[in-house]
Design a protein around this nucleic acid. Structure first.
Lengths: 150, 150
DNA sequence: CCAATTTAGTTGCAATTGTGACGATCTATT
DNA sequence: AATAGATCGTCACAATTGCAACTAAATTGG
């Protein structure tokens, strides 16, 4: 005679959405990071800073942090590293002297444009590997997630 | 008269799939981590170790690392922490004395079951917030991603 | 106008993580 | 059985990160 089993169902980690999401994101990030690390010796905070500055032009460190979800000390160190490579310049804001307006140098912009190509190629290959259905699903899923936390 | 503009299109970070994926995963992970951190003082490696052991029963540190994508030193430290809480026991394998077979204690299993409930609740709320379409899309997208890197 | 509060960015310190080397043990080859 | 190579887990050390305190400058409110 069968009876009800009253153990809690254990958690299947491979089916747990936060875990799956995290693992997938880490795998993708890691593959992309190896490109800019191997080709340019950039760290992830440095890449994000470069990408944000390249996208928006002149910008402050705080704005970069807000926009790319990085702590201000991370941004501070990334800015220092990029400055030492001569990829960006700091300009004191004349009307608010606490602020530094950051701008890419020509060398910084050139590296940025190179990396934009690397990024676009990487994404294109990723989406192609996912196939049209997988790519569309992923984008829709991400969109739904983004609507939650902002 | 219009003419072709020949600048590269800049990268829009908010539309770049690896970035979106990473940001979404971090937001979700962080929200979930705050639950087990606040309620049990667990770190992420500790939670993952507990969850893997709870799911599979007796297991070695190396197997935990392989299964949950953690470096072996991370696992080693998480195991030490869980051992000190008396949530797991190490048993030397008799046939291979390099190996430690790890098992949850009753206290460890109780904590695990509590956290399984927290995890299930968290996931249910997440999926509910995403709505049926968003949740399905996310799952399909993750499935497509998992088929790539394994 | 001045004190209190807020903001931008940096720095020192502590915690977390990754790397490489290590001792111990097992396996494979001769 | 003896040597060489692989594997398990740990440790010491270096690099990365986060937090809190700090300087300098702007803003707010009496």
């Amino acid at each position: 005679m069968k009876r009800k089993i009253d153990i809690d169902p254990p958690l299947i980690l491979e089916a747990f959405t936060p875990y799956r999401l995290n693992k997938a994101a880490e795998a993708v990030s890691h593959r992309f990071a190896s490109l800019y690390r191997d080709q340019y010796g950039l760290t992830r905070p440095e890449w994000r800073t470069l990408a944000t500055l390249g996208q928006f032009g002149t910008m402050t460190a705080t704005a970069i942090g807000t926009h790319s979800s990085m702590h201000k000390t991370k941004v501070s160190r990334a800015v220092l590293a990029l400055e030492q490579r001569r990829w960006l310049l700091r300009k004191r804001d004349e009307t608010d002297r606490r602020v530094e307006n950051l701008v890419l140098t020509p060398a910084g912009r050139k590296a940025y444009l190179d990396l934009v190509k690397v990024a676009h190629d990487f994404e294109a290959e990723l989406l192609q590997q996912l196939g049209p259905r997988g790519a569309a699903a992923l984008k829709n899923g991400l969109e739904a997630l983004e609507k939650l936390a902002g």
